[in-house]
Design a protein around this nucleic acid. Structure first.
Lengths: 249, 249
DNA sequence: CCTCTGCATTGATCCAGATCAATGCCGTGC
DNA sequence: GCACGGCATTGATCTGGATCAATGCAGAGG
């Protein structure tokens, strides 16, 4: 199938850093320094990357795959953040040398660059470009978190589902079938509800022009859907990660 | 009463910056640059500092007072973050030149340093110490937000109230009356519930050794309280704001 | 092929917390 | 002093979504 990958898959930590878009403005020797003692790790489906309350030993850069960040109490788990590559996993904990507040678990398979925490802190603390890049990354994560909170607190289950699906089929001409990007149970947890509620509510959403059949969504009535489910850029908008451009005096 | 304030109350933007703890490691001339076109603004009780969806014209440093950050939909408002001085208001929006996701409203009276957004970005982008300080600030805010989310998602109304009160009277010897730091309606909204539910649930909390009478809390049975309400440092712990120390090579 | 395991669906029921409504209370201004 | 407006309390009721429990269904491995 994939005869022509967009670019070579990184096989060393250094290559992985070089391919990370939001590190573009960071000088090569700074990346060298980060990569110095780093390793590129393949993580199998379902593994836990770190545990709540652990003190970070590494800064973790997610190069490919998805990671769930879960709040844990006893046996209970609830999703707090869903991380897409490429991104840092909870940089705040690493920067402040404080314990992780969440458990990280990968979906599917993931690749991670593991950078010594101390190396990471020192390099950030001595290089402005990197510091700005990390700041932009952290800022974007913060805003995503706020959007997530707003989604949960301001919308009902039905609206959350409707908007989620609408975003997926946005732009396609009505009738085009689109595959769901995740298993339903994962979508449910991202939207802050149980599997059962998700399943049930799909039926009522269908009555507003968005039909889900198996793992395929299909917009049946754009007008009806648009009336019932209003996408809000301050909730549903994509959060870009753009470091501030430096003006050298 | 306050014949001897801890230190002089700042009367210029420059003084206010100098008194801000987490800017301690920033060089004086950098602070000068920030303060250049800045103004120190007194904001009366209840005023809205900025509106959801506005594009930031200023970086806002809260010097004294408290600010509620609210998610708004139509007429509905729900609290997402509660900011204590000294702190930046949603630095992420300013850094990325993106619209605010929340409405900011002050409680009581507040004092704000307003720094031109462009000046702020440029100064951050050209000064490592400042960049690190802002990064630390943003990281702390992120972690507070995560803790808040965990509090809401992992605990019941009763537990949230119990832990909140426990934190307040923590350390005092049983029987000591302590004043609530805020009006009850505000505590309720910080804890993500309605006034009514808060009021009601105080009765059931009292049965576990924590009594609230009017605006006064009092620990009646430390043992009982400790059993029912377990403070978790990963939720209830204070989140410090400490910039990474720089090691100049 | 059959079994096993994990996901999805569907139904019945439950319950925490919201909502609606009335009353009391206290500080402020006239 | 009195009236008023915002907060708090208390009661009655409602309900969105969770929970518990079966059943169906598909892919993986023997």
């Amino acid at each position: 199938m994939g005869i022509e990958p967009e670019h070579e898959v990184a096989s060393t930590p250094r290559e992985a850093l070089a391919q990370t878009g939001w590190l573009r403005s960071v000088a090569a020797d700074t990346l060298d320094r980060l990569a110095k003692q780093a390793v590129l790790h393949r993580v199998p489906a379902g593994s836990t990357v770190f545990e709540q309350a652990e003190t970070p030993a590494f800064a973790l850069l997610l190069v490919s795959g998805n990671v769930e960040l879960l709040a844990v109490r006893g046996t209970e788990e609830t999703l707090v953040e869903f991380v897409l590559a490429p991104d840092l996993l909870l940089p705040a904990a690493v920067l402040n040398s404080q314990p992780y507040l969440l458990r990280a678990r990968v979906l599917g398979e993931a690749r991670l660059v593991m950078i010594q925490a101390e190396t990471f802190r020192e390099t950030v603390a001595s290089n402005l470009d990197l510091c700005l890049a990390v700041l932009a990354c952290q800022a974007a994560q913060f805003r995503r978190q706020i959007k997530h909170a707003k989604n949960l607190q301001l919308r009902s289950v039905e609206e959350r589902i409707g908007c989620y699906l609408l975003k997926i089929i946005e732009g396609t001409s009505p009738g085009t079938p689109v595959k769901l990007p995740l298993e339903k149970r994962l979508i449910a947890s991202q939207l802050g509800m149980t599997r059962e509620t998700f399943s049930r509510t799909l039926a009522t959403v269908a009555r507003h022009g968005i039909r889900v059949d198996g793992d395929v969504v299909c917009l049946e009535d754009a007008a009806a859907a648009g009336i019932r489910f209003q996408l809000d850029p301050l909730i549903d908008g994509h959060e870009p990660m753009r470091p501030i451009r430096i003006k050298r005096n």
